[in-house]
Amino acid sequence: MEFYKYLIPEESIDVRIDNVATLRKIEGKLRETFTKNNYNEVLMPSFDYVELYTQIGCDIPSSNMFRFVDSKGKNVALRYDFTIPLARLYATKYHDTTSRFCYFGKVYRKEKVHKGRSSELFQAGVELINEPGVRGEQEILAMLQETVSNIPLNDILIEFGSAAFLDRLFEITDDDARLQEILKYRSVSQLKEFIKEHDFDEKFSRLLLKLPSAIGGTKMLDEICELVDDKILLDTLIDLKCLIINLEGTYNYQFDLGMVPEIDYYTGLMIKGYTKNAAKPIITGGRYDKLLPKFDADVSAVGFCCHLNYVLEALAMEENND
């Protein structure tokens, strides 16, 4: 049977004509925003060594990559991510300067078949490398704001978390793996057990119990601050608050203090963007000062990425619902 005449592999995405125009329009606006602010577009290679993703300590399983063996017998993967190869690019070519990069393109991630998931993901993003401290974050937040205003969805909600807050929390509790796991799943039942097992004072226990639902505006943040005695821990929250409340313009945002970094290179501000009609975040990012040192470049970095296929899906849903 000549199946190839009418079938496409399970991994392929459906070829659509109707939403390409929308995609290109959004992409065009984002490109204009990014380049206007001196973010240089880079065209990243489609192939990279599997080790780039597995050895850098980001816990990406090689089984999720599309791999082949190159002419030298080395394992090569289809581009799985933009941030990691960009860190390498910086470390090898732009060392010590402050660099602004933006990118547009697909990443390829193997998914189990028949789950309704896509293996081809279209991303657009910015990375600001070697602009440490609040200045870097403010710049990225301004970019984020412009980006959000260029995505034609009605109900985008931006959420901020702090990896520094969590790191200090894990230090105080002297236990990172377990508490991190509990917060990742926001398991109230397990959190109660965890508190029972430890000899925390009453106030600190109350703080921990609040975390799974510590989502809200500055009022919520202030309430959490009231429960914090540790100076360093309190400072991480004050830093977050100062950063966000000084944002100019309108912005539908909230804090989520129970936000756990999905990749462990995040060190400070964490960003997530949601829309009602997408089942996954449409924007992810933050400060990731731990990544560049892995490439022997001792510099900071901050950035975010828009997951444009989720944006397109949400737009299609919005249209259907209208």
């Binding site: 926001r186 398991s187 799974p212 996954k280």
Partner: peptide, 11 residues
């Protein structure tokens, strides 16, 4: 199940 990206709020 291989899906892992959920909150497990209550036992």
């Amino acid at each position: 199940n291989d899906f892992d990206d959920y909150y497990e709020l209550l036992d």
